[in-house]
Design a protein around this nucleic acid. Structure first.
Lengths: 203, 203
DNA sequence: GGCTTCTACCTTGTATACAAAATTCTTGAC
DNA sequence: GTCAAGAATTTTGTATACAAGGTAGAAGCC
């Protein structure tokens, strides 16, 4: 999406300007903006226009807290419902992650990491929960990615993945849930990195 | 909303027909339909139109499962963050609930019940979680209401409320969470009632 | 008689034109 | 010189007209 960095927080999005930029009329552009509004990326104030709404530090921490809880629920449910095939897929994703780390392939790591989490969502056996988790995951993507830049984070993240798989394999719902929550939660060093990244984005 | 009972599942919503029904042109009506699409009440298939999408039994159970987990998280967080004032408000809501039961005032009960849950959402201290919880709560409202028709359910629901307040007052996060999950979850008799209500709605 | 294909009509999607509201600039008064 | 009020311009919201795609019905072929 174009909202990653090209637009500052609070900026008004001019309909006519964007319309001619994309070579469409205002009608379909307004519909697109409405979709963005519902996804939370922009705010629409009646008779005033739509404004880009980058989440502040407080809202961001809140969203990560909810994400951690959602994924913890996914893991807890998955511990009882996961298939052997999915367990094998998770292990494969972890192997691919390790390869990406060794090759210093950050993009590759991120792609396999995403796959790992998507599998857990799906194995919750609750497609509504899966959809909601994916939605929030997607929303947090740009911020989550920043965390991978933290020195040594990739290796730590990997071992957390392995602990989660182990708990799922044992069918230990509580452990899987706790490991996943800790894995996703923003705390310690991750918190400081998130805050500093917000400052640099505000310039 | 008009979608409660007036439109059958799978029905196509004719834009021109609805437009003249509301005395507006197609443009604002399409924008309204898009908002409905994002809220999940209708499904939009490109070049085909929008169709009302009543959740089937599976999706409904899934949504209630997520609702129970969300509220459980709210309760867990609230156990550590709740204010004395909010505790007093919860007790007051319970008193009002009891009064409504004695007066056989179902609407009154439902209103105070809603208040009770809204307070817990807010006391989670996470406004994003609060918003998401309210969103799903709202989506489930018509189905939730049916459960209150279950004989003796009001009284049982009341005692569950009181157990939740007690756990919150003691700051027992685990207990508050478990009590809340059980309170919201669809299980036992509630499940059968939900299924039978779906059948009657399908006629 | 049934299946396929072509055509006509219907519906969604997009553009443009117009109306209403809000903001900004200018003008006038204190 | 500053503040307020009004007018002009900009901008959102709505209506209507047009284009493109899809569905259904009719006609022709197997």
């Amino acid at each position: 999406m174009i909202l990653e960095g090209t637009f500052a927080d609070g900026q008004r999005l001019d309909e006519v300007q964007l319309a001619e930029q994309f070579n469409v009329s205002r009608t379909p552009l307004r519909e697109a903006l409405q979709r963005l509004t519902l996804s939370g990326l922009v705010e629409q104030i009646p008779r005033r226009g739509v404004f880009v709404r980058q989440p502040g530090p407080v809202e961001l921490v809140e969203m990560f807290e909810v994400m951690a809880e959602l994924e913890a629920v996914c893991a807890r449910l998955a511990a009882n419902r996961i298939t052997d095939q999915a367990l094998a897929d998770l292990k494969q994703a972890n192997v691919n992650c390790q390869r990406a780390i060794d090759a210093q392939d950050t993009d590759g790591y991120y792609r396999e990491n995403e796959r790992f989490h998507a599998i857990v969502y799906h194995q919750s056996g609750n497609s509504f929960l899966e959809r909601e988790s994916k939605r929030l995951h997607r929303r947090l993507t740009p911020f989550r990615r920043l965390q991978l830049r933290l020195r040594g984070r990739l290796r730590q993240s990997m071992s957390e993945h392995e602990a989660i798989v182990a708990a799922l394999e044992q069918g230990d719902a509580v452990k899987a849930s706790d490991e996943m929550r800790a894995h996703v939660a923003v705390q310690g060093e991750k918190f400081h990195l998130l805050m500093s990244s917000l400052k640099s984005a505000a310039e």
